[in-house]
Design a protein around this nucleic acid. Structure first.
Lengths: 358, 358
DNA sequence: GCAAATATTTGAATCGATCCAACGAAAGTG
DNA sequence: CACTTTCGTTGGATCGATTCAAATATTTGC
């Protein structure tokens, strides 16, 4: 009856099998990891014993310690885990990462955490060979934490001006210019910008000084691109309202309210993400303003949904999948070097932009 | 110069720190894992030494072996990894899983493999505390492989009639009936079915005998639901063409071609997935057939995209997020019991179904 | 000032495998 | 028949931590 009571018996280990089969643990190990070097008779006996004892196969936990390599790359963010499946930008990026991982047989471990403390723990204890960081918000902390693990990592979006870390991003200045030129050439002269965050935990209109001292250089560069190009067309960029949102519905709508509360509403909106752009289109339409009849809207990112909204969104497309693929390869083929890659962007003209109203 | 040559020096271990700081490794370990029980002076000294020597913190690989728990759940499929981010059904499901994992602080490891051999290896070596299996194709092999790991696991969709494994799925018979009744009540009498696979690696029209011997009971049950309900309305179900597809564009279109090649085209299509339903709508529209004017189409799943297509899809909605949540909890709160849960489905009437043409 | 109570530290044991130098046995060679 | 190969097997070392009973140090109480 003892055997019945001890229902919670510990699992059989390789050593147990070895002893029961009367072979050394070295041989038992070989039966599973390099069966070809073990004599057939022995191999079969050991396998039979393993089967009989209910052995689950070599435990990866043990193997891992010896082998050193996990064969998985961690993708980390400060957003909740569902971000990876809900956010269109993240999804396309993950698709690119998946592709590279599939090709090499590596796995993907998703790492995230709501609060700071858990984030630290999760980064510290993730079983991965390297990290890809989604530097959305709280990015600097994420980078610090990851740096301490002393594993290879890449930051997506060259958010911070830190040349010591590997990063992949797009030419934000060029993207900004492309967007601005497109609208300017359509005759627009009154603009408003829906901006991504410039620092942490901020929202609302921003002043030119705040722009200059921005932590997030990605945001700053897009803005710089917009402004540089618009000044060439003689637009007084100091008059352009720039509203910083959290890249979601509530703050974006608040921004639109604020922007359109003024006396001279813009005829074109430069949104720094497709998400904001789509929210803007919805808001404008609901307000009875025609897009692009009354107001033109241009996005940034080039997520698939942007092609499907009504009207289809004109936007600056990033090579999102390619960024993901490259990021994964940077980790998978890590050689110790710090790499910073900047990819090009492309203007995708669809139907949300049109000539300025006369 | 020796120090320069040995650039590839092995990383510092906890034991190195202990020695350098003149404490036992037990104490060194405590400094990191239970700092409160170490005298402040010692704690600070050890931390300083660690910092100076460039210690990356306790290696999770080592910790893991001792601790035994990974604190991550594996989600496995035989599809490529990108399936998790591309497929709408999978995405919603993952969202539910993420939610549960976020709440408990667990991580998610994505496991997949194109070929059989890699699949086996990936399942065997995944560092997880349990598995959630997406039993799409090759599901039975996936289940066998996973069973051998002797870790808790749940199959999504009670695909196989194996009462010994935990599974979560929906009442497919009820779903089939709901769909069939809806169309029958709209006056339809000529149907065609776009079916998910009944066995492995199959495609094309299926005979009633094949239906009876189907491996995938999910598919079989939906079909059974359709047929049971339609017979009540006096429809001769033996005349209904059932075309098995691979749930993607090419084979679905091939099915439609085949179905509409016959003399008496159907006025309503019962699709076993929203994906096929949406492909069908596209195909029909391109062919000049109005939906639902000429042909009504009903789907199955209730993925978000289905609400957005044109016309919005009438479908049988599964509580996808809830399934994901429950699956994750089954692993996270595993108690040794085999659980089989069947959730209800719901008819979502939108615009892709209408009265049969007089 | 001394015993008891409490706070720290130690070091061996453990987690579950893989690797590898060394060794014994069988087979091949001149 | 002695001598080298080849093939299989052995068992100790190692991967990098955590844990815990025992040893030692420090306080506290009287």
């Amino acid at each position: 009856m003892a055997s019945l009571t001890e229902g919670n018996t510990r699992p059989v280990r390789l050593a147990d099998i070895a002893k029961a089969a009367g072979v050394s643990h070295g041989t038992a190990s070989n039966v599973f990891s390099r069966p070809e070097i073990v004599r057939q008779e022995v191999r079969e006996r050991v396998k039979a014993v393993a089967e009989a004892m209910g052995y689950a196969g070599p435990d990866p936990k043990g193997r891992l310690l010896r082998a050193g390599k996990v064969n998985a790359i961690g993708v980390a963010t400060t957003e909740p885990l569902s971000y990876f499946f809900d956010d269109p930008f993240a999804r396309v990026m993950m698709s690119g990462i998946s592709e590279a991982c599939d090709a090499t047989g590596a796995g993907i471990a998703l790492v995230s955490a709501g609060n700071q403390e858990k984030l630290a723990w999760n980064i510290q204890s993730a079983l991965v060979d390297g990290f890809i960081l989604f530097c959305i918000e709280g990015g600097s902390r994420l980078v610090e934490l990851t740096r301490e693990r002393k594993l290879p990592f890449v930051a997506l979006e060259l958010g911070f001006h830190d040349e010591t870390i590997s990063a992949i991003g797009v030419d934000n200045v060029a993207g900004g210019r492309l967007a601005a030129r497109h609208l300017a050439e359509l005759g627009h002269r009154r603009f408003a910008v829906l901006s991504l965050t410039l620092g942490e935990d901020r929202t609302g209109f921003v002043t030119p000084e705040e722009v200059r001292s921005a932590i997030y250089t990605g945001t700053r560069d897009r803005l710089a691109g917009y402004f540089e190009e618009l000044s060439r067309f003689g637009v007084d960029t100091t008059k352009i309202p720039v509203f910083e949102t959290e890249n979601e519905a509530a703050s974006t709508r608040a921004g639109l309210e604020a922007i359109f509360a003024g006396g001279e509403p813009p005829t074109a909106i430069l949104a720094m993400s497709d998400r904001m752009a789509m929210i803007a289109i919805e808001w404008l339409t609901a307000r009875g303003l025609a897009v692009p009849g009354d107001v033109s809207v241009i996005g940034f990112d080039g997520v698939p949904d942007a092609a499907l909204c009504d009207p289809p969104l004109t936007t600056i497309a990033q090579p999102i999948t390619e960024i993901g693929r490259r990021a994964a390869h940077m980790i998978l083929d890590f050689d110790g070097a710090v790499r910073r890659e900047t990819l090009g962007v492309e203007l995708l003209v669809r139907a949300s932009t049109g000539p300025a109203k006369a």
